[in-house]
Nucleic acid binder design. Sequence first.
DNA 1: TTGTAGGCGTTATCAG
DNA 2: CTGATAACGCCTACAA
Lengths: 339, 339
Amino acid sequence: MPRTRSVNRTSIQDVAAAGGVSLMTVSRSLRGVDGVSEATRSRIVALAAEMNYVPSSSARALSGLNANLIGISFPTLFNDVFPDILEGMRRIFDEAGYSSVMDTTDYDRMRELAWADRFLSWRPAAVILTGVDHDDRLRRRLTASAVPTLEIWDVTQTPIDICVGIDHRAGGLELGRRIAALGYRRPAYVGAPAGLDPRADQRFDGVAEAFRDVGGTAPTRVAGVGGNSFVVGAEGFGRIDLRTPPDVVFFLTDNMAFGGMMAAQKAGLRVPEDIGIVGFNGLDLTTVLPRPITTMTSPRRQIGLTGARHLLARLHGVSPPKITRLPCEFVPGSTVRAQ
Amino acid sequence: MPRTRSVNRTSIQDVAAAGGVSLMTVSRSLRGVDGVSEATRSRIVALAAEMNYVPSSSARALSGLNANLIGISFPTLFNDVFPDILEGMRRIFDEAGYSSVMDTTDYDRMRELAWADRFLSWRPAAVILTGVDHDDRLRRRLTASAVPTLEIWDVTQTPIDICVGIDHRAGGLELGRRIAALGYRRPAYVGAPAGLDPRADQRFDGVAEAFRDVGGTAPTRVAGVGGNSFVVGAEGFGRIDLRTPPDVVFFLTDNMAFGGMMAAQKAGLRVPEDIGIVGFNGLDLTTVLPRPITTMTSPRRQIGLTGARHLLARLHGVSPPKITRLPCEFVPGSTVRAQ
DNA sequence: TTGTAGGCGTTATCAG
DNA sequence: CTGATAACGCCTACAA
């Protein structure tokens, strides 16, 4: 447990001494509150800047003010959905005067718990978690600390506080039905290992139900391995047993679907004549492809914006909806055969 | 400037009172330092957990201990190079007992400065910046505060403290020479608007020099617009004037190159027969493509790992090399014509 | 093994 | 308009 030596820094005291005023005058000047003559204020502000004075957030937080800090935890940087969700969200917090910090958990609930413990120790204004499956201790601690909490990307009837997301099972179900309606009956599913990513499991369940309903086979599930999603998709496809070939392969994301499609073509299969390829999320990649991927869009930017607004409302004492479920939309694409 | 009301939280005092001991006994118990009987320790630890006690990092930091906090600033979540750089890096800090937080700057030096100001106010153990071009005030403040600083992804002879990266100009130069050697003479370059991303400018300069040396035309420069790199690449290609068509197009990244290649093919151009396509970074995407993109790998994971190790050494009082320049490597691919 | 005093840097409060 | 004082919650140092 290393411990770096703390460095000499100029404190508000130093500035006060150098300016020949009391420390409170410096404090007031720097914060721009009333009660200081314009002359001394500008003098002190200049002096502080010149002395490279940086106020201590720890002391400020300790003296009673809130840290105006929002923590965001998400599973991984390697999934294109999270940048989309975070993009608009962080800008909104910025403009509202909050600063937000991010951390990743690698889909590990214990890492998420550890992060939350560390982060709560800074007395933040709010906490944002990805998904609604968390360790029980995390729920307890969040509830106990009464810190406003936003769960994004997934929804539940029993959020810790408020949640904004999509119904992944319903999304998988609708997607599965659309594909089954085209006559496909032997699906495979390439995604995260069962139990790792709850959203992957839910979508799988939805797809499975759709094919069960039409008398198709249960989808073969193939686990991709972590890292770049194109590679995961391609490797996942390679792990499908082609001796009893599926007629359509669902992928966890469009990027994985693209990787899988490349692997399929390398294996001599034509898309969609020999095999159908289906993605999820409606990622921007598919807009540049000559053959757009059949997929289900998820309103990622919308989730980020709505989540941010609801959380801000919560912070301002207004009560936003506890549960906000946003719609997905089917995109026909052309990587499955036409009706 | 909103200000959330601070919430009732159980303090070390409360635990002490409830346990019938002094506050110091609680403090010692929780930190696991010597000087507490095993009996009381376990009793107190259990009690604290039960009371959902979370120590205040602010108070701890203020009382002299270091925050063990490392801040990482990078331009955007939408560029595949940064996740690669950050991946190994953050794990190393984790294992060394530091917690790291990330923020993005949108390639805006003022945002970077603002972030640094906010972050330095927490008295962090170290700061990590992307690139070596920063506002002068940032350099001054970092130097004044004496916080160990690591600059990654780019190198300079005059780092703020230490730096680990690649020479982007040299990379562009070598890449340009390889391509020029194949007989190409009319390059175009699709990347960030001039002046936005210093690394893009450096690579452009390198490519330009290579073609100047062989009597080729100066590369036409086309600016992509922010957001998803596939889309930026495709749109950038669309902005090239095809009445005086280039014979080869360089892109800032492989993902952009892929987007551009799709746009080229949509425009009826064959790759590489009609036009060459060249990327940069050796991103994982190209490993799944039937036609791998001609590119230059950048040692992104290596940069992250080496940077993290050097910074840790620095934090432990050892002096790592101030400047570490890692090599790039040319990948022939097959999106340019063969020798 | 346990407890007491003092201080970390800032702000709220009240006095001048 | 300005300054003195007492918190904020924790830890070091010393005392019992």
